[in-house]
């Protein structure tokens, strides 16, 4: 039997937590569909889409130790690409393929720029790049400028066996759930390989890694491109849900929310990004309906999380799950 080290064990705990979330989502979708609920299903779909963005922040922050304050750049890129492709050919696969290819290229370019520096400077450069992109989109008439693009058509998503409309609340929710779980699975798999271990080594001590014979730039760049693609592919789902895109998707509020999501959910846990997004999206919607001072509530919550739960929600839950798993694997 293969030796199980700490990383694999914590990954398994994350898998279990995500499986739990999926099970809860399936129950929720069944109840929602039975009751003909539309709003909460769409809200949950939006939460999952933003969970994808948070996942990409967690790859950089949790495994590479790099705080990106501009991940909305790639989320917005994906959203705009997907909207433009869908308005031209209403095909999910075309939109997803274009987004994957373009975001890889843009991520590579952005990665070359941002990864020249570390720490605070990395945060500032990613922030700056996203702001520049947001301003350009905000002033480009062909992209709808400050008004954004409306009229993204409702599409039929053909999965070979079944086909359903992006306007069907339960169907599209399940579909987005599937996409986000796949994105999570790919991320978790990659981070559990030697590549993932090297990223963690980089976070721990970047100067030592070259002495072990690895090029740090290649490693950091790969992690950055993967994160960019995951953010963009999540963003590509947004116009399918809401039928429009606007420059606000690239604004700092989007990037900042993703960082808050990861910190509340638990940095470096991956599952925390998903739980954090569901929690924050729901909370914002509910609190926002009660008071216009909802930003204060969210801010206090964030401060409370940082002070009392420095490792986030999953930072508390996951070690318990890990202990449970170890106990069971012992003879």
């Amino acid at each position: 039997m293969r030796m199980i080290d700490a990383l694999t064990r914590s990954m398994r705990a994350s898998h279990l937590l995500v499986a739990l979330l999926v099970a809860a989502s399936l129950v929720f979708a069944a109840i929602g569909a039975a009751m003909g609920e539309t709003f909460y299903l769409r809200l949950a779909t939006e939460a999952l889409i933003f969970a994808g963005l948070a996942l990409s922040v967690d790859i950089l922050l949790g495994y590479n130790g790099l705080l990106s304050l501009g991940q909305a750049l790639y989320f917005g890129l994906g959203a705009y690409l997907s909207a433009l492709v869908l308005m031209w050919v209403p095909s999910f696969w075309a939109a997803f393929a274009v987004t994957a290819v373009v975001s890889a290229v843009v991520g590579l370019i952005g990665g070359f720029i941002a990864n020249r520096v570390r720490g605070v400077y990395f945060a500032l450069i990613t922030f700056g790049m996203a702001q520049v992109a947001a301003k350009v989109v905000y002033n480009t008439r062909a992209l709808g400028a400050s008004d954004g693009l409306i009229g993204v058509p409702v599409i039929d998503i053909n999965l070979g066996i079944i086909s359903f409309s992006s306007a069907s609340p339960a169907g599209f929710f399940l579909f987005v759930l599937g996409v986000i779980v796949i994105l999570y699975g790919v991320t978790a798999y990659l981070l559990d390989t030697p590549f993932g271990r090297l990223l963690i080594a980089l976070r721990a001590n970047e100067r030592r890694v070259p002495f072990l014979g690895y090029r740090t730039m290649t490693l950091r760049l790969s992690a950055y491109v993967i994160a960019a693609m995951i953010a963009a592919l999540s963003g590509a789902l947004y116009p399918m849900l809401r039928g429009f895109v606007s420059p606000e998707l690239l604004f700092f509020s989007t990037s900042g929310n993703a960082v808050i999501t990861v910190i509340v959910g638990g940095v470096g846990t991956l599952a925390g990004a998903l739980y954090g997004s569901v929690l924050l999206t729901l909370l914002k919607s509910v609190v926002g309906s009660y008071t216009e001072h909802h930003v204060i509530v969210i801010g206090l919550l964030f401060m409370g999380a940082v002070i009392f739960l420095p490792r986030g929600l999953m930072g508390i839950v996951r070690p318990a799950v890990e202990r449970m798993l170890t106990r069971r694997s012992k003879p």
Partner: peptide, 15 residues
């Protein structure tokens, strides 16, 4: 923020 507006409008219409 149009993204928030859309979510809130959906709530008002549907819920």
């Amino acid at each position: 923020n149009p993204s928030v507006a859309v979510q809130k409008a959906d709530k008002l219409f549907q819920s």
